[in-house]
Nucleic acid binder design. Structure first.
Lengths: 249, 249
DNA sequence: TGCAGATTTTGATATCGATCAAGGTTATGA
DNA sequence: TCATAACCTTGATCGATATCAAAATCTGCA
């Protein structure tokens, strides 16, 4: 049982698709900027038709040549790096409206695996074309700089979490972050499905899966949340917030 | 006793300063790209005269309005974020030739403190001007995208370190990383001064200062390095590398 | 529908790094 | 040159989280 978005995904014919691509679901990419109708059209011509990615499939893998950024039109992905000796670190979870692949610009190779955690759709943004267009549309150029900067800020937040927080604080921060991001997209902030395993959460948060499981159980015991496998209901968000800020050491 | 760079810093008169700024010490910013003489001149007109920052001073602080990126012409900085409840997380150490402040593009506010760990000199790059210029010099635009992307990749590496590695592995990785970066700049790879305290190393690596101290002592006992306060001599780099890769769990 | 594999929960124990504490060293500035 | 503060080292102990183990539950596929 999946909650349905308040932003309806209607007609998948090309015309509508492009329209909704730029206007609606690619919010992080497009909404914040005031493009003229003409500029919007130009942008549309670059963005390919939405491409479906099945659950478990890779959008790209580390080492593959970089050609395009990908805007998630619908769905949920994890990004992860694998160290030489085979350890996986999930570097992020990405949902509708977010842009993936910016790490690859630096070397022209993807540095992460991007794996769909549910059936998803992405729009491809050929990077060279986007660069060219962004030279002609200053606001678009600025927007790309902003998006990459935002990714850096996000990563700093994760570093703070990994470097300073205790297990339960990390889990609380993680749940609140997801909650907020679902809310922005018109889904319920208090009740949502985790798309990832306990192990993937653990990898992201620098914890073992058993610790994740135990923390969730404890939150449930204390009446902060309700857990039913991957369905999370947040009962007492304020207590979760307090948990994060109380951890002064 | 500080080692001197192989890249001499000669004359600080404006003319020489600008020349060396673009040609020499701002390697990460400028060297990789083949600008024409004319483009180089244009770039030079944007870059302000080198500004000295004394040890302990802030180049900028979180919350301050963002106007410019800063290229480190000479010196050593730490960047750190402070959480609401007052915990510091060092997000990076930055040295000659590196660019700081890219995190601030996203919100037009600095999100980190940047503190000089030794007397330093920076060149200021007004961001709006750089954006404008980068529209006319495609290779410059691409270079900025690359620099921001590289920062993201770096951060992912730190996340891997914080999420997966044990204390000694983190320290080993840290020492090798510093060693490599000094080497690139023409300093010794095997012998260098740490510019930061054990506590700052610990903050960066998600460890307490005592753990940092103990790990360094142990490395010394085992003949991997020599430690004399902040002077580090790397005796057996291969053993350090092995330490990092052996940690399969 | 039922089965096999994947995922999750929970318990018992071990271990790494934090914490507390004290003494030593180095740097700074009068 | 000395006094003081900052920084570093080392030891003893504690605690949070990892690890190991086993059972329960869920999921997807035949």
């Amino acid at each position: 049982m999946t909650t349905t978005p308040h932003i309806p995904v209607r007609d998948l014919s090309l015309k509508h698709l492009r329209q909704s691509c730029v206007n609606c679901s690619l919010r992080e990419l497009c909404l914040p900027i005031g493009l003229s109708a003409e500029e919007m059209r130009e942008l549309d011509t670059l963005i390919t038709q939405a491409k479906p990615i099945k659950r478990g499939e890779a959008l790209y893998r580390a080492g593959e040549p970089f050609r395009s950024l990908f805007a998630i039109r619908l769905g949920f992905f994890k990004a992860s790096v694998i160290s030489e000796d085979g350890r996986e670190q999930v570097t992020g979870f990405h949902m509708t409206g977010e842009l993936m692949g910016m790490d690859a610009v630096s070397s022209d190779l993807h540095t992460c695996d991007a794996i769909a955690l549910e059936d998803s759709e992405v729009c491809e943004l050929p990077f060279t074309d986007m660069e060219e267009l962004s030279r002609r549309i200053p606001i678009l150029q600025h927007h790309f700089y902003k998006l990459m900067s935002r990714e850096i800020v996000r990563d700093h937040g994760v570093m703070l979490l990994l470097g300073n927080m205790k297990a339960e604080e990390r889990i609380a921060a993680f749940l609140l972050n997801l909650s907020q991001r679902f809310a922005i997209r018109g889904y319920s902030a208090s009740s949502f499905h985790l798309r990832m395993t306990r192990e993937e959460i653990g990898s992201y948060l620098g914890l073992k899966l058993e610790t994740v499981s135990r923390s969730l159980s404890k939150f449930q015991e204390n009446g902060l949340i309700k857990v039913q496998n991957r369905l999370i209901e947040i009962i007492n968000p304020d207590a979760l917030k307090q948990l994060i800020n109380n951890c002064q050491q």
